[in-house]
Design a protein around this nucleic acid. Structure first.
Lengths: 172, 172
DNA sequence: CTAAGTCATGTGTAATTGCACATAATAGTG
DNA sequence: CACTATTATGTGCAATTACACATGACTTAG
């Protein structure tokens, strides 16, 4: 590897030990070279344009996210949706309320466990989602322009590793 | 590259053309294989634990982000901070109010252009930031455990490309 | 089988955020 | 030099969010 943070590569015994400029506690750290800042930046830009378009179709970003979660697993409980959508349960509870008003989902108590609310997309919800899909697809293609599928696969592997690391026990 | 979405690799003329499973509009798309979902997920987990620790030091996530922006460029205007911190100007304006109350920053009108508010970290703000830095550093090391610096460099390049793509003209 | 414990969800409340607009300051135009 | 356009920021207001707690439902120990 190349030298980082002024140290010569010989000084670095293993590739993993010294994170040099990448580490936010380094004196030479810069946001432009920070993985997490860049993730937030990319994610922000990705949604920035898209949200405006989605709003024209009466769908907010959190509602869209819930719909994509439901597309994969139906029915799903409030708690399961919250976890997958990276949002607090109480918030999801209210988002589902709004989706009910719009007729995008149904919410029924689970037959075996009455505490659980089972949320399912209605045909109208499915249709709305199908309508939005190509818009999101175009935005995705735009984001990935000039990036090889090999690089995308590499990106996925790294992100998955990071997520796995962070799902272990917390800091202190 | 390997086949994606059921197509054989021979069918794919260029590596960039068909995004297969990666594209949110694909029938075989899964959130677990979606770059943007994984970015959001990693970013969420990264901040989830950290925020709790930061709060014990009286610093919220948005305040911490503003501080890291100021560390790199001081003084900075409200607008410049907003852009770098991926937050609306009016929101930053109010966050700066809170930081002023805590004595973390000063805000002075620019001498040449009276519209501009120049925000600067106070010594107390600098000190607070220095105190938090090792905490964030540990979280970073935890996140990157088992990932080589080469992979991090690769991740950075890809994320930078994506950000650059999305900074061009919007969708429709 | 009953009581304590755990779990899933919903709700009151306060804080945060963004939008739309207002205000103040500068730049540009004829 | 006056007048319009643009720019930077701040504020009223509505919507969204999270936290803390309450409620109802299931589970388990004894």
């Amino acid at each position: 590897m190349k030298a980082v943070s002024g140290k010569r590569s010989q000084d670095i015994v293993e590739d993993q030990i010294d994170r040099g400029d990448y580490n936010p506690s380094s004196a030479t750290f810069r946001l432009a070279n920070s993985p997490f800042y860049l993730m937030a930046h990319a994610d922000f830009k990705y949604h920035e344009d898209m949200d405006k378009v989605l709003h024209k179709h009466g769908v907010s970003k959190p509602i869209y996210r819930v719909m994509t979660v439901l597309r994969e697993r139906q029915p799903a409980s409030i708690g399961a949706i919250a976890e997958a959508a990276l949002t607090k349960r109480s918030t999801i509870s209210r988002i589902i309320d709004r989706m009910l008003e719009q007729g995008l989902v149904t919410a029924e108590p689970n037959a075996e466990d009455n505490r659980i609310t089972e949320v399912t997309l209605t045909p109208a919800g499915e249709q709305r989602l199908r309508k939005l899909t190509p818009i999101v697809g175009r935005q995705f293609m735009r984001a990935m322009d000039g990036i090889s599928n090999r690089d995308i696969a590499h990106l996925l592997r790294t992100l998955q590793k990071i997520s796995a690391n962070l799902s272990k026990l917390p800091i202190e």
